[in-house]
Design a protein around this nucleic acid. Structure first.
Lengths: 232, 232
DNA sequence: CGGGCTTTGTGAACGTGTGCACGAATGCCT
DNA sequence: AGGCATTCGTGCACACGTTCACAAAGCCCG
């Protein structure tokens, strides 16, 4: 069995869809469904059925032709592949607006990512309690990471403090970072970073809205889809 | 997705990077930089220089060979292409943990997306004030969307309420949705939806962590991995 | 027990995105 | 003015991702 069985690298695009399948399969299991076709799963996930089959094929051949996939077994296999067979404690840097919301959001721990700690540079915030976790000073970060065996850090600071937060996380031994700040973090190659940027998402939507608006403007008259005037 | 073939369509990948360039260019402008090379911009954005040039070329040829791009002009062009020449008021559905954080997050309005309203189904939440905006009942959604000319809606409800929220937004006339719930929303073709899913992001990081771990762990058996037979 | 129906798994075609390499254009220096 | 150093704009090749289409593999029923 050595290292080669657990070998195949799974394409990024597939990895990003597996969590979606996983959630849907969990819901189906709760509803008593114990077998599901790629077609049905695709419908629920909002994707193409062939894509579902190809994605699942990277996990191995766990389907039964003419029947479909056994829900429970598939859940197990996806969880195993995603490394969800055990908890991954996370540490949140930044106890501001967002940090508070994240710490308070229960679904965190439920899904296997318990909040091992929340830290902030601001002494005024240290000591307060968020979602059952006391905010500690950022200097305690290394200790938290070490004792709680944290691999994943969350950057929930203002943009100007994000790089420092990331540096401290890396120095403390974290190897994956979820970044909510509107900044491109500079980190060593080996560190995995994912960015969630509200402003970027809204601006992408803005692009599409603007596009629709300029299409309508050509064909019809005032469609009413034109938003308020610009501010200098 | 849609099969429009209008003027120059900008590739999705490029659209998702333009906001990043835009933010960086804004920062550079603030620092007094008025000319920038694709190389430098690429470095700051964490991407390849050729990619920057190709991305910018979709906007037109606004660079000067041998010199670079004029920061101010580039900012203007990107803003125009992204439809950021005017504000896009947004309405937030769900005044829970996340909705509160979003409404309270000032950077929203600053970036051209003022919060036109926050609504919730829960009467207990209606009336309270979040980030300067009073929470109103969700039945008022159509009126808010109409009077404030809202095109973009934000779904910040628990998963089980997200589809209903989306349906109401669409019915009210919203044509773009930013979805924070862990659900795949079913909406008409013409509606643009972008999903921000915390759980998915963490699970993707988990995958990579698990991967690193299994590479290093050529020693010892799998710790605690207890496979189950497929038999039900 | 064989024929028919269903659904998987995957080869192949097609589309999208990335990065190199280089010609073309421009400013600067002598 | 002419040559040189830059840096843009883009053709091209390759990698990655998506979708189609169909043989293979299973179940069910008569």
């Amino acid at each position: 069995m050595s290292a080669d069985r657990n070998r195949r690298r799974i394409p990024d695009a597939t990895v990003s869809r597996l969590p979606v399948y996983l959630r849907i399969l969990g819901e189906q299991a709760d509803e008593g469904v114990d077998s599901i076709s790629s077609e049905r799963l695709a419908e629920l996930a909002g994707v193409n059925a062939a894509k579902v089959r190809k994605d699942l094929s990277y996990l191995g051949s766990y389907g039964t032709r003419g029947v479909g996939y056994e829900v429970g077994y598939l859940v197990y296999q996806i969880r195993r592949e995603l490394g969800l067979t055990h908890d991954w404690p996370v540490v949140i840097v930044g106890a501001g607006n967002l940090g508070q919301a994240l710490a308070g959001y229960g679904g965190f721990g439920e899904r296997g990512f318990p909040v091992a700690g929340v830290v902030d540079v601001d002494d005024a915030k240290v000591g307060s309690v968020l979602g059952g976790v006391r905010v500690r000073h950022i200097d305690e970060l290394p200790q938290i990471v070490r004792t709680k065996r944290v691999n994943i850090g969350v950057v929930a600071t203002p943009a100007h403090a994000a790089q420092d937060a990331a540096d401290r996380l890396v120095a403390a031994g974290v190897t994956s970072i979820l970044n909510f700040a509107s900044v491109v973090l500079a980190v060593p190659r080996a560190i995995e970073v994912r960015k969630v940027d509200l402003a970027v998402e809204l601006q992408i939507l803005s692009y599409h809205e603007q596009r629709k608006a300029s299409l309508h403007a050509v064909s019809g008259g005032a469609a009413g889809a034109v938003p308020r005037p610009a501010s200098a």
